[in-house]
């Protein structure tokens, strides 16, 4: 079997990066973002990038790092708050933004990954999101046509992988990582631990290895928390 494991993010991205490419990226806020791979994209110096990602990181975290270095031309996202540099570039017109409703964004990735170039959805009917899109009536209700996102490259963060690229995620860090992984021509995954085949439960694989072309172990991780909320006492 072809070797999927690379020594680090730079090596894993070798030959895959070029200016003006479309990258699908997993993560929700700072949860489950492929931080090693994003750092390596930044260090490569490629520019004019379009990112399809639910969020744009925050200032100097995640995609926020590539905004700071002006490597991002366009964002396809559902929510971009908590990011001052994003706001500055967006308001000055340096950065193009395509807002896509969160579920539509996830489905545009999933659909493309499943070979479906477009689908009709009720989400956004009668809103700005519907402008310029085909409207079709099914069963007396209006739906709008949304197009799949066929990305040149998918960047994904997961918990564990075996050496053949079977992947499992942890808790809510799964989020957009699965649909993003499937919609890339090439998918590069960073994980916290790489194990031998057989060590992951074959019945509990979240992303089968067929979707994963390159793999790195990015540990150790110092995971960031956007809003640290706690309780002080036991709940009854």
């Amino acid at each position: 079997m072809a070797q999927k494991i690379y020594p680090d993010a730079k090596a894993a991205l070798d030959g895959l990066l070029r200016n003006d490419m479309l990258i699908a990226c997993g993560g929700f806020g700072l949860c489950g973002i492929p931080e090693r791979l994003l750092d390596a994209v930044r260090d490569s110096g490629v520019t004019g990038l379009t990112f399809a990602s639910n969020n744009a990181g925050i200032d100097n975290e995640g995609i926020g790092k590539l905004l700071r270095t002006r490597q991002v031309k366009k964002m396809i996202a559902s929510y971009v708050g908590e990011n001052k540099e994003f706001e500055r570039q967006y308001l000055s017109g340096e950065l193009e933004v395509e807002f896509s409703p969160q579920g539509t964004l996830a489905e545009r990735m999933r659909a493309a990954g499943a070979g479906i170039p477009g689908f009709y959805t009720k989400t956004g009917v009668g809103t700005l999101v519907a402008e310029g899109k085909d409207v079709k009536v099914f069963g007396g209700e209006e739906y709008i046509l949304e197009e799949g996102i066929f990305a040149d490259l998918a960047l994904v963060k997961a918990w564990k992988a075996d050496t053949t690229g079977n992947v499992v995620f942890r808790k809510t860090a799964r989020n957009f990582n699965v649909p993003a992984a499937t919609c890339g021509k090439v998918c590069v995954v960073e994980v916290e631990e790489i194990v031998q085949p057989g060590e992951l439960d074959a019945d509990a694989i979240h992303l089968p290895g067929v979707y994963v072309q390159r793999l790195i172990c990015g540990a150790p991780y110092d995971k960031k928390i956007e809003f640290r909320t706690t309780r002080t006492t036991d709940v009854g």
Binding site: F28, W159, F227, T229
Partner: peptide, 22 residues
């Protein structure tokens, strides 16, 4: 790795289930 849609840290329950965004 365990947050809500407002990006606040939360906890899981015995009957919790996780899945992807799609």
């Amino acid at each position: 790795d365990l947050i809500n849609a407002g990006k606040q840290t939360i906890s899981q329950l015995p009957h919790s289930a996780y899945f992807d965004s799609a």
